[in-house]
Amino acid sequence: MKLLLWAAIIFAVIWLLRSKKSSAKVDVPESPQAQHDGTEAMLRCAHCKTYFPASEAVFDSSNTAFCSVEHRAQHVSR
Rank of each mutant, 00 (worst) to 15 (best):
A7W: 13
F66H: 02
R72W: 01
P29R: 02
S55Q: 12
V26Q: 08
H75K: 02
L4K: 06
A8W: 04
V69E: 13
A24D: 07
V13Q: 07
K21E: 13
Y51E: 04
Y51F: 12
Q74N: 12
G38K: 02
F59H: 06
V28S: 04
L17C: 15
S68I: 02
P53F: 01
S61D: 05
W15K: 15
S31F: 00
H47C: 05
K49A: 05
N63K: 05
A7H: 13
S77G: 12
A12D: 09
R72A: 00
R78N: 12
V69H: 09
V69S: 11
K25I: 15
G38H: 09
D27V: 14
P32C: 02
T64I: 04
V26H: 09
S19I: 09
S23N: 15
L5E: 10
L17E: 14
M42F: 09
I9M: 09
V28L: 06
E56D: 15
S55M: 06
N63L: 08
A8D: 09
I9H: 04
V58L: 04
R18N: 11
H36S: 10
D37C: 12
L3T: 10
L4W: 05
K20R: 11
D60V: 13
R72S: 00
R78L: 11
D37I: 07
V76N: 14
A41R: 01
P32M: 01
K20Y: 04
V76L: 11
S61C: 10
E40I: 00
D27Y: 05
A65W: 00
F59R: 06
S55A: 12
D27G: 12
A65F: 01
S61L: 14
R18D: 07
A24R: 09
Q33V: 00
C67I: 07
S55F: 14
Y51V: 02
H75C: 06
D27F: 03
V13G: 03
G38V: 07
W6P: 10
P29L: 11
L3F: 07
S61G: 10
W15D: 13
T64H: 08
Q74P: 04
S22E: 13
P53A: 06
A54R: 00
L5P: 00
A73Q: 11
T39F: 06
A73V: 12
A12M: 11
A65L: 01
H47W: 04
Q33M: 02
P29F: 05
S19C: 15
W6E: 14
W6S: 11
L5N: 08
L43Q: 03
S61T: 10
H47L: 06
V13S: 03
S77D: 13
H36V: 02
P32E: 01
E56Q: 13
C67N: 01
A41F: 05
S31M: 11
G38R: 03
S22C: 14
A8R: 05
E40C: 01
F52T: 02
S22A: 15
C48K: 09
C48N: 11
L5W: 14
P32Y: 01
T39H: 04
R78H: 06
D60E: 14
H75W: 03
E70R: 14
K20C: 05
